[in-house]
């Protein structure tokens, strides 16, 4: 059996704080911060709702189909409008040469179509 002898740390001012107390406070702080992260996310989502609605309105007004994320090549700028064989567009066995190609895979519907054709 362990002898229950609380370890005490005496600070400069004579206050004794157990290490476990500090750890439990830090633990509670961590849990609280994670909780606050979710609260912040929820509040930010509410605050951004109007901005997202405005973006949707611009998309509707200009009849846009894609996000302007990757502007390096035409088939990455408009991913949803890309050619059937965009990754191999230069010649039949050409490998994808734009860096975006390693992030943005071919859309699911294009892959499905290719399977039917093969």
């Amino acid at each position: 059996m362990i002898n229950i002898m609380p370890q005490k740390k005496t600070g400069e001012g004579g206050l004794s704080v157990r290490k476990s107390t500090i750890a439990l406070i830090l633990l509670a702080g961590g849990v609280l911060l994670i909780g606050l992260m979710f609260v912040h996310a929820a509040l930010q989502r509410q605050a951004d709702a109007e901005e997202i609605a405005q973006l949707t309105a611009v998309v509707k007004n200009l009849e846009l189909t894609d996000l302007c994320l990757f502007t390096e090549a035409r088939y990455t700028r408009h991913l949803s409008q890309a050619d059937m064989f965009s990754a191999f567009q230069d010649h039949p066995t050409a490998l994808e040469h734009f860096p975006t190609g390693s992030i943005a895979g071919p859309p699911e519907n294009i892959r499905r179509l290719n399977e039917k054709l093969d």
Binding site: T65, L67, L79, S80, Q81, G105, P106, P107, E108, N109
Partner: peptide
């Protein structure tokens, strides 16, 4: 290309 396909493209990206 229907709207659902455009959204699905970004789902897969």
């Amino acid at each position: 290309i229907i709207r659902a396909e455009m959204v699905r493209t970004y789902d897969s990206v």
